[in-house]
Design a protein around this nucleic acid. Structure first.
Lengths: 179, 179
DNA sequence: GTCAAATCAATGCGAACGTCTCGAAAAGAG
DNA sequence: CTCTTTTCGAGACGTTCGCATTGATTTGAC
């Protein structure tokens, strides 16, 4: 019936593989190149399978946006038990490895996309609000300022104007001055 | 001959009108909706005219990117003669009016687009480097930090997590602490 | 005036697009 | 086993895309 679907795991696996293909395309070729056919080709599956798991292109893009958002918040949540939470949290917002760069580039692409989509815009804003709330509990009124600093540093790191090391050093200096 | 083109002014005027149509579409519907036909419709001209002024879609998008970049730097340059240049410069990086929001949304869209286009990426990086150089002459080593702060605040303003007033107040506080 | 260049509307082409339908596998329930 | 449901590959549909071509009109140089 409803909860049948194979063994259950295969379902999520195949869904995830399709979303991975979306991320790969967005990262290397930009959101413009995302099409059902192109995604199917990248994932090495048929168009029919993509349509089965994501009935419309909008469903596909929305799911991809959600997955990226979840991955980002998971990344942040994983740092909340650290000894120095604020610093760990903020440095986690700076892309360091190539894999990080991929995640951030894709995230930025979807964030831009979300600005012209009311539903996604709402979720985007809510995600940042939650992050601000968590940070405020740690560092008080400086939360928004530190978050903005980290976001700006991440952006300048993606463009190549800053190295990840520079960016993280600046984040740390920002916390020390006004933790 | 070459420099003939009507009275000269008409040429640039019509070119500019087409680019304005691109901006309007990017702002309200996103970069995905930009097509030759859609731009022509938005501008109220024929497809042929658009093709005449911009032989390929890539030419059109590159010209739009350049125009947005120039508009942004012009905005910044206009502030360089102020009494308190650093603050004026940085607050100029925060969108306040609806017109500002439009400019920044379009700029962010093109910036994201540039991340997957080597040529545009180079120009984007160079633009920020020049801005960093100007700021460094004003406030020293704090330049990168302040620029990142302003960029992050602009981003959070676009998402609606901050009001322009909040953002500008935070920029000012950042300059005072470590001008 | 002549004439070449610039301008631009109209139209067609091939490709790619999102979506739908149909039927065949595959798999779990009974 | 049978049967129902899920899975999904193959193909066609109508639309829209970027781009090229064609020819008419306008324009400035002379």
């Amino acid at each position: 019936m409803k909860p049948a679907r194979g063994r259950g795991a295969a379902h999520d696996e195949r869904r995830g593989a399709i979303l991975e293909a979306v991320f790969a395309i967005v990262d290397t070729e930009g959101t413009h190149q995302v099409s059902i056919r192109r995604v199917a080709e990248q994932a090495g599956v048929s168009v029919g399978r993509v349509q089965h798991y994501f009935p419309s292109k909008d469903d596909l893009l929305t799911a991809a946006f959600t997955a990226i958002n979840d991955r980002g918040t998971a990344r942040v949540q994983a740092r909340l038990s650290e000894s120095s939470p604020a610093e760990a949290l903020l440095t986690e917002l700076i892309p360091a490895t190539d894999e990080d760069r991929r995640l951030f580039r894709v995230a930025q692409a979807f964030e831009t996309h979300a600005l012209t989509n009311p539903e996604l815009a709402g979720r985007l804003r809510q995600g940042y609000d939650e992050l601000i709330a968590v940070l405020t509990a740690m560092v008080g009124d400086a939360a928004k300022k530190l978050l903005a600093l980290a976001l700006g540093l991440a952006s300048l790191t993606l463009t190549g104007n800053l190295t990840p090391e520079e960016a993280r050093a600046i984040v740390r200096s920002g916390i020390e001055k006004r933790g």
